[in-house]
């Protein structure tokens, strides 16, 4: 017993201050690739190497439409390596969760030169997050937020609907002493009947569809569904095939999407807090108009 106490005292407090303070992460971490559409002279190289098709090029006559989908991105960094003009840059941004799938998609339209490089940027379409307010409030004390918003703690039921287990590793890490999710009043529960939030990973496999739906149906209203990782959002590298149904929203409505492969613990926390906002809207619809 003495040994245990000694070790505990010697170790001290290791818990991170995030989200109260910015996350301390390695400068090598690969987060969101960012695109300087003005500067981009040719999207084809990046599209060619992108393993999941997150960068997609569609040419019609002398115009090109480039689509970037963060919901497919596995943050490999190949696009930045492949873009000779340095218009693609890997940033350290990881707070990418969104309540709207469309917010994760950017498109740019170009006119083309005869060698099919970009002549002129015609338009960039990016949807302004309709959830910006929530994202901004993540910096506040999350515990207060949850208690104030929900007037109680938050119960999450996690379901692996076919993942490689990478996302689970990071979800489990949320409970380690460094991230210590319970300090916010968030707990993982075994029974869906006690859960407010369904956290789903993986492309939904044909063999897991039924179990996932049953878990969802067993949860009391109101409830929110969070799709985790590239696979949970879009099927990721697996996509849709004879055994995989692709992203979670092919099976049930999704409230929040958390990009990553897998999303790091802070990204998960950010997405979960975003989903708390959605849950509040469902709990107290009168305060949110409609």
């Amino acid at each position: 017993m003495f040994k245990i106490i000694q070790k505990t005292i010697a170790t001290g407090i290791v818990t991170t201050k995030y989200p109260g303070e910015p996350a301390q992460i390695s400068e090598r971490f690969r987060g969101r690739p960012s695109f300087d559409f003005e500067k981009w002279k040719d999207a084809r190289d990046a599209a060619e190497v992108c393993p999941t098709g997150a960068i997609f090029v569609c040419d019609e006559g002398d115009s090109r439409r480039v689509t970037v989908d963060y919901g497919l991105c596995v943050f490999c960094g190949l696009c930045a390596e492949a873009s000779a003009d340095q218009a693609v840059r890997i940033t350290q941004e990881f707070e990418l969760a969104s309540a709207d799938r469309r917010n994760l998609i950017l498109t740019a339209e170009y006119s083309l030169n005869t060698d099919r490089t970009h002549r002129e940027l015609r338009a960039v379409h990016r949807r302004l997050g309709d959830v910006e307010a929530d994202v901004e409030s993540v910096g506040q004390k999350a515990r207060e937020k949850i208690q104030k918003l929900l007037r109680r703690s938050l119960a999450i039921r996690e379901v692996d609907a076919g993942s490689c287990n990478g996302c689970e590793l990071e979800i489990v890490a949320l409970n380690n002493p460094v991230y210590d999710l319970e300090r916010f009043g968030i707990q993982f529960v075994a029974s869906p009947r006690h859960a407010d939030m369904l956290l789903v990973t993986g492309p939904v496999t044909r063999n897991m569809e039924l179990a996932l739906l049953k878990t969802y149906q067993a949860m009391p209203e109101p409830k929110v569904v969070v799709a985790v990782g590239a696979c949970g959002i879009s099927g990721g590298i697996f996509g849709k095939n004879y055994a995989s149904l692709g992203g979670v929203d092919n099976v049930m409505p999704v409230d929040v999407y958390i990009p990553g492969c897998p999303p790091r613990p802070q990204a998960l926390l950010h997405g979960i807090l975003l989903a708390v906002g959605r849950l509040r809207e469902k709990l107290f619809p009168e305060r949110h108009g409609s």
């Binding site: 692996d160 496999t205 063999n207 179990a211 697996f238 055994a243």
Partner: peptide, 23 residues
């Protein structure tokens, strides 16, 4: 088992090798 079967071996036959590394 095989609840998480997602057609991986078959998918390997469809991806160019550099992308298959990510699979």
């Amino acid at each position: 088992m095989f609840y998480t079967h997602k057609g991986t071996e078959k998918l390997f036959e469809k991806l160019p090798i550099p992308k298959a590394v990510f699979l």
